[in-house]
């Protein structure tokens, strides 16, 4: 099976000469939830921008379903790779939630009924059915984020990229987004960029670590959170519960959730 995204020897430098990506190789398969983590400026956002053709490789190639992005424009690639930007205010411009979500599918040359179906479906997935007539300016930040995600879901791309989905979200918002990402996995491949290790540990199965324009780790999240050198280098702290477990003698070092923690206590008691 061809991977949905395949990156070969990707290099990218900005016109001012700053090298943002060095020799990146990776494959992302259908149905995965991949988290990309790393410092600010490590190249995470640049990397995902090459996935939908916003940025073209300086050398090397990015293949989407086996086709190079080189000669494809973003408008076309957006049918396969949807990208939700970090700041909702950069993309929301319509007067109502419904119209905002309908903008993407409208660009795909679909029939009216199909657009309507998709918009309602997307709003239902993110839980905003009741707000469809609301003015976008009256929305809370939590809801604005959900609208931007819905606007990509409505385009029904195979891959959905979420840039910092939990930034600026309160606890309630983060919990909703967690659930939403798990829901999205049923029909989509999901890539998240995040600094929120709680979120990463809960939703992702695979972690890609970027550091100084290089990909320095690509693998299972438990392996990543146990690799102290890696964590030190990138200044990432694993979730609190993992840190706690790692300090207790006799505990497994790769615990990620409260449930696993409790299981471990019960096991030790016996």
């Amino acid at each position: 099976m061809t991977p949905i995204i395949k990156v070969n020897n990707l290099m990218f430098s900005y016109p001012n000469g700053v090298v943002a990506l060095r020799n990146i190789n990776l494959e992302i398969n259908k149905g995965e939830i991949v988290a990309i983590i790393g410092h600010n400026g490590s190249g995470k956002t640049t990397l995902v921008k090459t996935f939908n053709g916003l940025l073209k490789p300086t050398s090397g190639e990015v293949l989407i379903n086996g086709v190079s992005t080189k000669n494809e424009n973003t408008a076309k690639l957006s049918k396969i790779v949807g990208y939700v930007f970090q700041n909702p205010d950069d993309q929301i411009f319509n007067n109502s939630v419904y119209n905002e979500v309908a903008f993407g599918p409208g660009n795909l040359n679909l029939k009216k009924e199909e657009i309507n179906k998709r918009v309602l479906n997307a709003l239902e997935i993110v839980g905003l059915e009741k707000d469809k007539k609301m003015h976008t300016l009256d929305l809370s930040l939590n809801k604005k984020k959900l609208v931007t995600i819905a606007s990509i879901i409505a385009m029904n791309p195979e891959v959905i990229i979420l840039d910092e989905p939990s930034s600026g979200q309160d606890h309630e918002g983060t919990v909703k987004i967690e659930a939403l990402i798990k829901e999205l996995q049923k029909n989509h491949t999901v890539i998240i960029i995040s600094h929120d290790m709680n979120l990463v540990s809960k939703v992702a199965s695979r972690v890609i670590v970027m550091w100084d324009s290089n990909l320095i780790f690509d693998g299972d999240k438990r392996t990543a959170f146990m690799n102290s050198d890696l964590l030190k280098k990138t200044d990432v702290s694993p979730p609190i519960i993992t840190q706690l477990a790692q300090k207790i003698k006799g505990f497994r070092k790769d615990i990620l959730t409260a449930d696993e923690f409790i299981d471990e206590i019960i096991k030790l008691k016996k």
Binding site: N73, Q91, G104, N107
Partner: peptide, 26 residues
């Protein structure tokens, strides 16, 4: 952000100008 939602900013000048309208709000 709008290109990522399928906005096509290529084509003739009128098409392009119309494409830029969504950018003004934000």
């Amino acid at each position: 952000a709008q290109k990522s939602r399928g906005l096509d900013v290529s084509g003739n000048i009128i098409k392009r100008l119309r494409a830029y309208v969504p950018l003004l709000g934000p």
